[in-house]
Computed example of a mutant assay.
Amino acid sequence: MKKVVLSMMTALLVMFIVGCSQQDEESSESAEGAEEKPTITLGVTPWTSTVPPTEIAQILLEDMGYTVEQTQADAGSTYIGLSRGDVDVFMDGWFPVHDVYIEKYSDTIEETAVSYEDADSGLVVPSYMEDVNSIEDLKGMEADMNNELYGIEEGASVTQNIDKLIEDYELDMKQVNSSEGGMIAQAMRKMESEDPVVFYGWRPHTMFNKLDIKMLEDPQGIFESATVQVITNKELQEKAPDAYEFLSNWSIPLDDVEEMILKIEEEEIPAKEVAQEWIDNNQDKVDKMLGE
């Protein structure tokens, strides 16, 4: 009897040891699998249009098991970071304006997906400037605006387009560059007293919800309707194949982006909360992007 009991105890002990060993192996394999997920860095430019898609992408990538970081920089620096691999993804590439960066860094970066199309951009004036409906109408009234045209930061490639526009339309004006917020603040100060003012505008942006403004016609076609794309470093496909696949399927309506910007700016709802709300309300779109 003692031998039987002893044999049973020995068998149970062996089973316990084997079970613990298997659990340890599974835990070890799980930990190794988790460690295999690299950190993905998202480039963020100082534009309101960049925030909603970046926040949505971060939430979904984190759900996939990735650690995600954001790095703030102007457009030029963001593309340099992409080319070096310091930045993996940029959710807000504007084309054809950003063609210059793709051409310069074509060996290391790529256009991965179209986020949305028909994003208009160009010169904007207040609606009370009733006789100004085309860029050509600015000719001869430059002094009324102190010969100044307000633009965004100098690092943005659009500043070169605006300088070209000033030259091609033979306007006696100088581009005054500042941040997006600084540009709009300067324009709003002029608009408070209904002074003539011209500045750079684009969609998606809340300026068209908040201000009574209009975009000027561009007969020379210097500004084209933009396509917004996801840009990635070429090594991402090998580094994080499932993340790359998800980003390859990325798409979001322009109107949705503009609505989210409005919630973040006007209603002061945290960007991450706005992004999560969009995910919750658009599970069909999310599933399609995730390939589910």
Rank of each mutant, 00 (worst) to 15 (best):
residue 2 K to V: 10
residue 4 V to A: 08
residue 6 L to M: 07
residue 10 T to R: 10
residue 10 T to E: 11
residue 12 L to R: 12
residue 18 V to L: 15
residue 18 V to F: 13
residue 19 G to L: 14
residue 19 G to K: 07
residue 20 C to L: 14
residue 21 S to K: 07
residue 22 Q to M: 15
residue 22 Q to D: 11
residue 24 D to I: 09
residue 24 D to P: 02
residue 25 E to T: 12
residue 26 E to T: 05
residue 29 E to N: 10
residue 29 E to T: 06
residue 35 E to Y: 10
residue 36 E to D: 15
residue 41 T to P: 00
residue 42 L to A: 02
residue 44 V to K: 02
residue 45 T to P: 00
residue 47 W to N: 03
residue 48 T to Y: 00
residue 51 V to C: 00
residue 53 P to D: 10
residue 53 P to H: 04
residue 54 T to A: 13
residue 56 I to M: 04
residue 58 Q to Y: 01
residue 58 Q to W: 01
residue 59 I to N: 06
residue 62 E to F: 03
residue 68 V to N: 04
residue 70 Q to H: 08
residue 71 T to Q: 15
residue 73 A to E: 12
residue 75 A to I: 11
residue 77 S to W: 04
residue 79 Y to F: 15
residue 82 L to R: 04
residue 84 R to S: 14
residue 84 R to D: 09
residue 86 D to A: 12
residue 87 V to E: 00
residue 89 V to D: 01
residue 91 M to H: 04
residue 93 G to R: 00
residue 97 V to T: 08
residue 98 H to T: 03
residue 100 V to R: 02
residue 102 I to Y: 14
residue 103 E to K: 14
residue 106 S to M: 08
residue 106 S to I: 04
residue 109 I to P: 00
residue 111 E to R: 08
residue 113 A to P: 01
residue 115 S to D: 08
residue 116 Y to N: 02
residue 123 L to V: 05
residue 125 V to C: 04
residue 128 Y to H: 08
residue 130 E to A: 12
residue 130 E to R: 03
residue 130 E to S: 15
residue 133 N to H: 10
residue 134 S to P: 07
residue 134 S to N: 11
residue 134 S to C: 11
residue 138 L to Y: 05
residue 142 E to W: 03
residue 142 E to I: 03
residue 147 N to P: 01
residue 149 L to T: 01
residue 153 E to R: 08
residue 154 E to P: 03
residue 154 E to H: 08
residue 154 E to S: 13
residue 154 E to D: 14
residue 155 G to K: 07
residue 158 V to E: 01
residue 159 T to D: 10
residue 161 N to H: 09
residue 168 D to P: 01
residue 169 Y to M: 10
residue 170 E to A: 14
residue 173 M to A: 11
residue 174 K to A: 13
residue 174 K to T: 13
residue 175 Q to H: 05
residue 176 V to G: 03
residue 177 N to G: 06
residue 180 E to Q: 11
residue 181 G to W: 12
residue 182 G to V: 02
residue 186 Q to W: 06
residue 190 K to A: 15
residue 192 E to I: 13
residue 193 S to K: 14
residue 195 D to A: 15
residue 196 P to Q: 14
residue 205 H to G: 04
residue 206 T to N: 09
residue 208 F to L: 05
residue 210 K to L: 14
residue 215 M to Q: 09
residue 215 M to K: 09
residue 220 Q to M: 15
residue 221 G to S: 12
residue 222 I to F: 07
residue 225 S to F: 09
residue 227 T to F: 05
residue 228 V to A: 02
residue 232 T to Y: 07
residue 234 K to V: 12
residue 239 K to M: 08
residue 242 D to E: 15
residue 243 A to V: 07
residue 246 F to T: 05
residue 248 S to G: 09
residue 251 S to Y: 12
residue 251 S to K: 13
residue 252 I to E: 04
residue 253 P to S: 09
residue 256 D to S: 15
residue 261 I to W: 04
residue 269 I to Q: 08
residue 273 E to S: 06
residue 273 E to K: 07
residue 276 Q to H: 07
residue 277 E to D: 12
residue 280 D to F: 03
residue 281 N to G: 13
residue 281 N to K: 10
residue 288 K to M: 10
residue 289 M to G: 00
residue 289 M to A: 06
residue 290 L to M: 11
residue 290 L to Q: 14
